[in-house]
Write a protein that binds this DNA or RNA. Structure first.
Lengths: 305, 305
DNA sequence: AGAATAGTGTCTTTGAGACAATATGCG
DNA sequence: CGCATATTGTCTCAAAGACACTATTCT
């Protein structure tokens, strides 16, 4: 309406000499999830230098200005940390999660981070790329995450013991007051009580909630599996991501009843379940992009209220 | 792990002298939606200068480095264009939509735009803020959007005649090429067929799809209404956003059956529908943040396949 | 043999949607 | 009066979930 105000003046200048105006750095950070030994794992790197030296952080880095899109930058960073080539990356689901831009989230300067969420089939051990001191897959159930975004936080679990099934109860987590996660990030690796650098714990929490919601109404759970899989493999994905056991029979029927979710390869798996049982039939991902009707989380309505 | 590679070198420098490295500008753009006369409208501004001078664009601007978060920047930009004060802004729902960072999306330089989605009750006419030549609310049904993200594009509608119900058919819209719709208000808006500057048509399409999906499983449709409203008012929101008529009786029962969606104010509206009928009871938004069970779009499964 | 798993059948309950019916208030 | 709307009732069908059952294969 009226004449230029100071803000506009600066914007005007910025268009012609951006370096004089916009000291905001843009990075991408990736919340990469995979299944290892039946448990959901998150890719994290050890920070090699300050700030937060020694703390866990998400793999990520600066977007190369004028060179790449955000999606490309995320794929590049993920590849650097996992050693994946372009072919293997093609089997990974990568989607944008959200952007984080609090002015003080990085003590050095104003950094806007565009977070991505990745679902990958079982991947090899992580290899530290960039200036990270190390990279590793952390079991999600061991994470201490601040400010759970919604209502599906990882429940307290016993350390060390991984029976392949669940340690937790039915899922209506008690608030668990003694379960604090202060900034006391230990720099040694044995103790898995990972506090994250920056606001990465919030990004991880948001990513986990997105993952839990996304497999409800999309077939993306198959992105955690190989080309062919059994219905039980698929059920294991849902159980690992949701952290709750599912009824095998009903799940089986449900998956087959949703059009386009999976399609049969007429084959049958050679190795039955490690504890006996008939050989399961093999399926591959179908062509649906959305599940109708959706596969809703058990008891989720109660958790949300 | 190993020695620094060139990329790392640049990142390292960037941390200490960002101006030497990161010529990426960060902006926010807002997809602001409201209901006017029963139809969904989008807030747009006329660009005052190149590039894309004279074209419609989303309200937005640069994030003030070190001064504000992304959310704050979006709220500020929205307020500038709508003349809303802080109080009125409190009644507006504002959420992050996604970030857009193709290197060539702005011809001047690499600009990463963080898009926001806003739901607002009926607002006054837009007032051009910043360096815009004008601002206006455009009927969403008149927009020509490239690359519809999904399967719920606006259908053709008859202009002028707004009977309060629908002109369209059952929802499987024919493309309807010659369908123009002048916003016919302040800023020389005779020529419609709005093509947007930059990639803003894609952002708008993504925002619309997000809005259509979001009111399925959240009570955010109430954000388009005043403090109190009737069930019919609420139904009008769903019909405007989804672009399809809903069965009044079933909708009524459904809304009341979802816990926490609306709560009754014991009152009754004084003005019945303009064409007669009993006075409807008034409700206000309930305390639920998610709807269980959800209010699914009719026929959406078929549209998605 | 005993145990665990794959896959199917059955039954109950909930919810979505089609349709009908009644009451209210405007023109 | 005639019509549109608000609200409630009824009926049918799809789907989720609990439970049971059979067949298969490992230890």
């Amino acid at each position: 309406m009226d004449g230029r105000r100071p803000d506009d003046e600066r914007e005007f200048l910025a268009a012609y000499d951006p370096r004089a105006f916009a000291p905001i750095a843009v990075t991408v950070d990736v919340v990469a999830l995979t299944l290892r030994g039946g448990a959901l794992h998150l890719l994290a790197v050890r920070r090699g230098g300050p700030p937060f030296a020694g703390a866990w952080a998400l793999p990520g880095g600066f977007v190369q200005a004028g060179q790449e899109s955000l999606d490309e930058a995320a794929a590049r960073e993920l590849a650097e940390e996992t050693g994946l080539d372009a072919g293997a990356l093609g089997r990974v689901h990568l989607e944008q999660l959200g952007s984080y831009g609090q002015p003080d989230r990085d003590p050095r300067m104003h950094v806007v981070s565009v977070a991505y969420l990745a679902f990958a089939p079982h991947l090899p051990d992580a290899t530290a790329g960039g200036d990270a001191a190390g990279a590793d897959w952390l079991p999600v159930e061991s994470l201490h995450l601040a400010g759970q975004p919604d209502a599906a936080p990882p429940r307290p679990i016993e350390q060390g013991r991984r029976t392949g099934t669940y340690g937790g109860g039915t899922g209506r987590r008690p608030p668990s007051p003694g379960d604090s996660a202060p900034g006391a990030s230990s720099a040694s690796a044995e103790a898995p009580a990972p506090d994250f650098a920056f606001d990465h714990d919030r990004i991880v929490a948001d990513g986990l909630e997105r993952a839990r919601a996304k497999i409800e109404y999309t077939p993306l759970a198959t992105a955690f599996l190989d080309e062919t899989f059994t219905i039980s493999d698929l059920r294991a994905v849902y159980e690992a991501v949701w952290g709750a056991p599912l009824h095998a029979g009903n799940f089986h029927r449900k998956v087959l009843s949703v059009p386009g979710f999976v399609e049969s390869t007429g084959e049958t798996g050679s190795r039955p379940g490690s504890r006996g049982g008939p050989r399961a039939r093999l399926y591959r991902a179908g062509d649906a992009r959305q599940l109708h009707p959706a596969l809703l989380r058990p008891d989720h309505e109660a958790a949300v209220r």
